[in-house]
């Protein structure tokens, strides 16, 4: 099933990245790490007013329908943006920390936590990205509305040596952190110049890199597990995803979604056996 990520790009996973290969992580062009509030889009239904179209002739009638369509599309987009803006309010207390949090700091910390491959380096200059195995990563972090968890969506591309035009592997990986149950979550994340927020972010990123590199090194073969509806925790909320369970241990499971993307999520059952470290290499 790892072939899905390759197949989506029209690539063939016939050769893989050696597990002990040296690799470099390329810094994104954007300097500051992106965070947002996690929004639920389930309430973005529009109103349904009866629309009467002027119809003195076919041309005006068609123009009226087209105009109505553009307005409706714009309203749907505005409704979604309004939900996202509302969700972003959760980040207000953390803005002073986040506006100073750069990819260079995040990715160096994540690289240090990534227990995979041979020598690994952070390619800080664009020209340094072009040699050896290269990993490009564009992370987007979201905070749940109860502030108990971070969610990472990471667009990862892996390039074979000398091949920077076509990635060998490209996919989106989502990692949901374990829920943190501190009595004051704002203090928990903010104290010590956002040390916990930064450490959690780096761990999620490192874990996503391990998952991506493992897939690049050894694409799964054989019969894929059947799809089923998997329940997991996202903060204090229970969420569901239609997916194949690829592996499960230590209060965490890695699943493959209908889009072929990997997700690493806390199991729904809070009584499941815990073990450390749950991230970044996981098991």
């Amino acid at each position: 099933m790892a072939a899905i990520a390759f197949a989506a790009l029209g690539l063939s996973p016939v050769y893989a990245m050696p597990a002990d290969a040296a690799w470099s992580l390329c810094l994104p062009k954007e300097e500051v790490v992106a965070y947002r509030g996690l929004a639920s889009m389930d309430m973005s239904a529009g109103r349904d007013n009866l629309t009467l179209y002027p119809g003195p002739n076919a041309g005006i009638f068609a123009a009226a329908i087209i105009t109505h369509g553009l307005l409706a599309d714009s309203r749907i987009d505005r409704a979604k943006q309004a939900l996202q803006d509302k969700a972003d309010v959760v980040l207000r207390p953390y803005r002073p920390v986040l506006k100073e949090y750069k990819h260079a700091e995040l990715m160096q910390a994540a690289l240090d936590k990534t227990p995979w491959g041979g020598t690994k380096t952070l390619a800080t200059a664009a020209q340094a990205c072009g040699t050896g195995w290269v990993v490009q990563s564009l992370p987007l972090f979201s905070m749940t509305q109860d502030q108990r968890a971070l969610v990472l969506d990471n667009v990862v591309s892996v390039y074979a040596p000398g091949e920077m035009t076509r990635p060998l592997y490209q996919s989106i990986l989502r990692v949901v952190s374990q829920p943190r149950m501190a009595p004051d979550m704002e203090r928990y994340w903010k104290d010590d110049a956002g040390a916990a927020l930064k450490a959690e972010s780096a761990s999620l990123l490192a874990h996503s890199l391990v998952l991506a590199l493992q897939e690049t090194a050894s694409p799964a073969t054989g019969d894929a597990p059947a799809f089923r509806t998997v329940r997991y925790r996202e903060g204090e909320a229970e969420k569901m995803e239609r997916a194949q369970v690829m592996s499960q241990a230590c209060q965490r499971q890695v699943i493959r979604t209908l889009r072929g993307w990997l997700m690493s999520v806390p199991v729904a059952d809070p009584s499941a056996a815990a073990c450390e470290p749950a991230l970044p290499g996981w098991n």
């Binding site: 973005s44 239904a45 529009g46 109103r47 349904d48 629309t51 179209y53 409706a72 749907i76």
Partner: peptide
């Protein structure tokens, strides 16, 4: 999916 006239006012849910 909600409609108004000929135009969808929501994405399908």
């Amino acid at each position: 999916r909600n409609y108004s006239g000929y135009i969808a006012t929501t994405d399908p849910r």
